[in-house]
Nucleic acid binder design. Structure first.
Lengths: 327, 327
DNA sequence: TTATAATTTGGAACCGGTTCCGAAAAAAGA
DNA sequence: TCTTTTTTCGGAACCGGTTCCAAATTATAA
């Protein structure tokens, strides 16, 4: 284990000179070359614990995820990893297992690890979140939700839903069920619904009914027969692709042909929606790109550079097989 | 930031006494109580960097994953997280992005972080892997592959494939295509095929042809029409659920009813195989349990306790809708 | 050439813990 | 009660770096 003392001795300089070399302090070209050569010859790399202990900072970015087994989370993490890896920053992932209490604990735990900043893949922001972030005093980057006290990278839920709504209406659908989620989740529960509502308000003669389910596929499978019985829409607009997968399964189970008897759309652009039969029309969010943007912005926040309060990642309406053209 | 010096001062003892208390050294009941109370009152927790710097060890377990966006990986990670979290051990995840070179780098990088051990979710073990592990001299736990130089938790690929083969044969299938993957992956590419082969050898009159594709769904979608044209089997046994999803999509695209015209099975028990229409028969592996077992064994290895060279996680044949009963 | 300003360097203290070992205290044995 | 053994305790060195600041060296200006 080569230490800074070894490097200093071999190069014939003081430890503090090597440290200055490593950290951008003043150093002559001659001395710089000497140190460079010794480091290259020995393969030295600094002990991160010693650095962090004295300097009281790290190059660790903490990422808190609500769950490890979701498409959106995985892609976002890959995007974050892509960027942090280039910078020799370490990403530490803290899994909250969809437990808000645990998410708060994770915030404090990451602070204890002296992370340089926290990227939070958020579902909702409670007062406890606010308090924790106030206490730990770290740069915070939200992904997928916005809050006026933090910087965020968000998917354009509103515009995507508006555009998807226009597409659906342009295909002649006027009797529409919207299957949403809890409004505690502002992005998925409120913004997507509002964008969709804006689109239908622009077309007279549309009948829309709003329903609610959870994020779980099984609940969507159970909810759809109720909707069919109560309202009998030509299409179900689902707030997530998982809900859409559940709706597709329910349609098959009820002997409905998709899209002939019932059309279905989702949000997210999960890989599996292209594989199903029929493939599902959806508003695709570029989660990996969002993760990458979040990491870039995080690094800027850490370096105390100015960034936008809100950064949008892209979306794209993927027109596939699951929407019938009625007219 | 409360330090051990603060605790010592308040409790009226030396720093080294507090340290002995924290680390199981000799300490009287009276002194122990004093320190306990001060720690409880102050919420002190030790600085991990200082501990690691001096003690030259950590409670970090490094987990190397081939990719972040796979069902098996996610579930395994959750299982590892479940256990390590209980122990106040930190899990650090290193993503290899399916790049063997990067996987080797990750091994060295984790060693530099003084991880207590490495859990490797492996696809193959090359000589470079062997060399890296020899160099870093850390406890290693493989998941999903076995190798005679390391401890491992594996899915019972052979027995699961044997049992699935028996089930398929019991349903009357005699003209069978097996769609496998590269034999570089011993578990998925060799063991599953061998177990299946054992089953069909026990039933005279079976015609089996073995084909190969990659792990990607798109490749499976392209491969299936070739198989149908060349061999026209009653069933395709796919080496993973993703390959089975591709086969299902290809069947639909070719106007084949599943299971009437073509039956399909997979391996893994991915959540989505229950949602498809028809739901896919598969050999389910308990990835989360495997992750949990791996973490438990890892901790034992770190504590220099004896463990079995190989630990099997469970499997279960999920008989669903995608296999036709021919007789 | 001399004086002044700027740059470079190294020694020492320090970060928050762990570890060692001699001294002191407590417990056990004769 | 005295001697021996065991347990407890604290002081000091140390882990591998960073930081500060005075001294030394180099560069610039008069």
């Amino acid at each position: 284990m080569v230490t800074i003392s070894d490097i200093a001795k071999i190069a014939g300089v003081a430890k503090s000179t090597v440290s200055r070399y490593l950290n951008g302090g003043s150093i002559s070209e001659t001395t710089k070359k000497k140190i460079e050569n010794v480091i290259a010859a020995t393969g030295y790399s600094p002990n991160k614990f010693a650095q962090s202990l004295k300097a009281k900072r790290t190059n660790i970015i903490g990422t808190i995820v609500p769950r490890l087994d979701s498409f959106a989370t995985s892609q976002t993490l890959i995007g974050i990893d892509d960027h942090l890896r280039e910078l020799d920053c370490q990403m530490v992932i803290s899994n909250s297992s969809q437990d808000l209490k645990r998410e708060i604990e994770n915030i404090y735990s990451l602070a204890k690890q002296k992370v340089a900043g926290i990227i939070l893949l958020a579902t909702e922001i409670t007062t406890e979140h606010l308090e924790a972030f106030r206490t730990v005093q770290l740069p915070v980057m939200l992904v997928g939700q916005q809050h006026d006290q933090f910087h965020s990278v968000i998917h354009n839920d509103y515009d995507a839903a508006y555009e998807l709504g226009k597409y659906i209406l342009a295909n002649g659908h006027r009797k529409i069920a919207y299957l949403g989620v809890t409004e505690k989740d502002v992005a998925v529960g409120i913004k997507r619904k509002e964008g969709f509502r804006k689109a239908v308000e622009e077309v007279p003669g549309s009948k829309v009914r709003y329903f609610e389910t959870s994020f779980k596929i099984e609940h969507s499978i159970q909810k759809v027969p109720e909707i069919l019985e109560e309202f009998n829409p030509t299409i179900i607009v689902c707030a997530t692709d998982n809900i859409a997968l559940g709706a597709l399964k329910a349609a098959h189970m009820n002997r409905l042909r998709v899209p002939d008897d019932l059309s279905i759309t989702g949000f997210g652009g999960y890989e599996i929606t292209e594989i199903t039969h029929p493939s599902i029309t959806t508003a695709k969010f570029y989660y990996r790109e969002a993760g990458n943007l979040a990491a870039r912005n995080m690094v800027k926040l850490v370096n105390e550079e100015e960034i936008n309060q809100i950064t949008f990642s892209r979306y794209k309406i993927l027109e596939r097989e699951s929407v019938d053209k009625l007219k």
